[in-house]
Structures are given as structure tokens and as C-alpha cells.
């Protein structure tokens, strides 16, 4: 998949290289995961504007690896979410137009926020479902 993030691109004349940034991010991931285990809730690490080279990004993604869960969310475009091989560490990648990465972050906890159903959506769904059943009922009555 070819994607282009918001981060500064790397000149084709300058072969992308590891800058040590992925190492730094991984250390931060470890520190935050330890806090989560101790019962704290910690903010996500936003990778979008970080000065990572493409090789840094690939290194980070590869070392975090893939765990048991992979999800696609279709809401205002596509998002991909996966649990890394480290339980509680989630990769969240949102796409904008032309399959460009609009933002990406690492979230911590039982599941990233975007996977949960929002209460407002649930109550709208309850109303919609009740209305659908009611009209089905009414149709059945007129049919008989």
C-alpha cells in the first residue's frame, strides 16, 4: 500500500535511514504501558507530525508487530486499528482522501476509543430499531 503521511517527506537523494526515533518511541510505549498496568489511564502517542523517516516508521511498526485483533472502521473514510503483539498497545491509523494517512497514533488500554459505540449512537440506534419494528408490525397488520 502506498500512503503518504503528513510528516515531511524524505528526499529521494537521501536514502531514508534509521534516526533512533523509533527506539525513543518504543521506550515511551514501554513506559506508558507500565503506567496502564499500574492502573493509570494514559494519553495516546501521536505519530502524525513526528519527524520519523519512512525507515523509522517501518521499524516501529515491525517491532510492535501484530497481535490478535485487526479492525477496519468505515466512518468518514477508512481507519485501520490493530492490537500490537503487546497486549494493551494499539495502533490506530486514519485515512483521509486518496488513501493518505490523515493521522496515526498509538493508544493504550483495553481497546482504543474509536472501537467503542458512543452512547449517543446507541440511543439513536435504539430509536431507529424500535421505529423499524413498529412499521414492520403495522405492515403485517394491514397485510392480514
Amino acid at each position: 500500500m502506498t500512503t503518504q503521511a503528513l510528516h515531511p517527506s524524505v528526499s529521494p537523494q537521501e536514502p531514508p535511514r534509521l534516526t533512533g526515533m523509533s527506539e525513543a518511541v518504543l521506550a515511551e510505549v514501554a513506559a506508558r504501558l507500565a503506567e496502564v498496568v499500574a492502573g493509570a489511564s494514559v494519553p495516546p502517542i501521536d505519530l502524525t507530525a513526528m519527524p520519523l523517516t519512512s525507515e523509522d516508521r517501518a521499524d516501529l511498526e515491525q517491532r510492535l508487530g501484530r497481535g490478535e485483533v485487526f479492525a477496519t472502521v468505515e466512518s468518514a473514510g477508512r481507519s485501520q486499528i490493530w492490537e500490537t503483539q503487546f497486549s494493551g498497545v494499539w495502533f490506530v491509523r486514519h485515512f483521509g482522501e486518496n488513501d493518505r494517512i490523515a493521522s496515526e497514533c498509538i493508544e493504550f488500554g483495553a481497546a482504543p476509543e474509536i472501537l467503542f459505540s458512543h452512547r449517543a449512537d446507541m440511543s439513536a440506534a435504539a430509536r431507529r430499531l424500535a421505529a423499524a419494528l413498529q412499521s414492520a408490525d403495522a405492515r403485517e397488520k394491514t397485510d392480514h
Partner: peptide
Amino acid sequence: SRRAFLKYASY
């Protein structure tokens, strides 16, 4: 849905 808001807000 609210997911769209969350996504827009993250962006």
C-alpha cells in the same frame, strides 16, 4: 456516527 467526530478530532 460519533466515530466520525472522533476521527476528525484526531486528525
